[in-house]
Design a protein around this nucleic acid. Sequence first.
DNA 1: ATGAAAGCGCTAACAA
DNA 2: TTGTTAGCGCTTTCAT
Lengths: 338, 338
Amino acid sequence: MTVTIRDVALAAGVHISTVSRALSAAHKVRPDTRDRVMAAVEALGYRPNPQARSLITGRTHSIGLIVADIANPFFPPLIKAAEGLARQRDYRVFVADTDEDPAIEAELIQALAKQVDGVLLCSPRMTDQQVEQFREQVPMVLVNRQIDGIPAVLMDVGHGSRLAVEHLVGLGHRRLALLAGPRGSWTNKEIRRAVTAAARDHGAQLTVLGPNPPTEQAGRDAADQVLDAGASAVLAYNDLMAIGLMQSLVSRGVAVPAELSVVGIDNIAASRLTTPQLTTVANPTAAAGRAAADMLLQYHGTTRSENGDENGTGAASLTLHTTLVVRESTGPAPAHAP
Amino acid sequence: MTVTIRDVALAAGVHISTVSRALSAAHKVRPDTRDRVMAAVEALGYRPNPQARSLITGRTHSIGLIVADIANPFFPPLIKAAEGLARQRDYRVFVADTDEDPAIEAELIQALAKQVDGVLLCSPRMTDQQVEQFREQVPMVLVNRQIDGIPAVLMDVGHGSRLAVEHLVGLGHRRLALLAGPRGSWTNKEIRRAVTAAARDHGAQLTVLGPNPPTEQAGRDAADQVLDAGASAVLAYNDLMAIGLMQSLVSRGVAVPAELSVVGIDNIAASRLTTPQLTTVANPTAAAGRAAADMLLQYHGTTRSENGDENGTGAASLTLHTTLVVRESTGPAPAHAP
DNA sequence: ATGAAAGCGCTAACAA
DNA sequence: TTGTTAGCGCTTTCAT
């Protein structure tokens, strides 16, 4: 029922190896033979079995893309961009979702390792050691995680966070709160580090709240802590949390930004939809997805480590810039604490 | 460098077929032999090569999931749910994005057909004939598309749309507009059919605007047409368009719902974020994703058509209910047209 | 330029 | 219960 290379060979009156050549190394076959083969291919509707092919070539023409949560609006643009680039290069993409769970993450990458030519690991929650271990099993490009010797696409969210703090300080805020993100997140550490430093530099007081799951619900739940902290401005780990926080604030009768300024991170589409519109640090997620896929395919595209540089070549990192998008959720510090 | 079944056999002092059995049909091997094999597996870190396995078994343990646009917030919850169920059954998921393009859709399904045990085709834009053709090449479950003889998970968006119309009529609206979606969409046809019928039943006048791409931008662009149509209420193909439309309306100084009522479809997370909050028809996307994956795996899980019913078994359809979520974007019809 | 033969890593009859 | 033998569908030497 399924048509194989043998059927084509039979129909074209040649040996299967000739069919194989006609399909991959066209120039190694006489034009007229090639034509006969192609005609048979057409007539029978033959499509090579990629499994069989990859069993012998060792390449699957597909890559894995692992994200913490596909329903988090941060990821879809990244995924889409990575897929688009992969498609251009005739690669398939396996997308998997770890539910923010390091154990599932490990399990998935393990399972994927054998089936793909490389893995794009986005915002991993595993430890560095775990990541390094998997990196030995499969070519890998990291997104939003920095580990020595592993190629990565980073977003300088630390810089963006500093801009946010300076924006806030410029508006007169002296007591800040940081609504931190999940534990294993490199981005979270970067933000925390940058915000702490920036607050110190500008003589502002900082309360760090967390860790928290990176969800709207966590943002809602944190409202009381934020209020208790006595801050006049909050920076949240991401827009989702900032949006949830604003909802709780509204329902408690706290005016944003009059009584409390709120800043998010990511610049997801929804951040323009809230009232007030969210001030946020914009992450170039699509560019990151594209760049990461490009890195992975380029790196693997050179038929397994060439360029006379086995260790260095693939290990370059790319850092993309973030920017502060000032909208309506930030304003001058109130004269008195709320 | 890569450890194969042969290495394990050698280390355990048994034949490779024994290793194979110990791994798949554990009970067909003596306990102590099995232990030795497993010890060797552990020691060597052996993982079976899924490509080789599937070459012989004909099953890949993965399914394809094709969506029109992964960045459309309608899809991620569906994808996530489908992936969750697949994971439970130890299946991998290939997610692909067609960019709303029927040609890419065909190309993708073609490429995927050989690499997966089945395909979940969500909101396809291809013609029925094309879909039917692919259905012969690979087990398939449709989401949001009804074609005779192909199992599907449907959402009764027609019912939901009727509810929306009745809600609007109940508020005194007599001139309605429908902001239609993309051409190939079954959902779009359903909505159009239901809205047309409901408007007729209630003696309301209806203007249909479209087809349009299912995007926020298309919603923004349609504001003038909507206004020109002289309607006092609009139903949009999806929330994204409704949200875009509301933005344009606001910028033109048209009050929602005072001068114009707006209803969306989908109930994406962002629909609660707008001001006014969007009245919308809620689609159970997560349930649909889960159900579709379940159908596909069950259907294929019976080791290729059993149950004494080769044609009928897999062809059942499941219809999920939609509900109307009344929020703030709909209100009484104004006394005079705007 | 083409055919013959070997084998990628594994499973599944069949023997023993 | 275990080993032997054939392949799954394809690519890739090696001859011819």
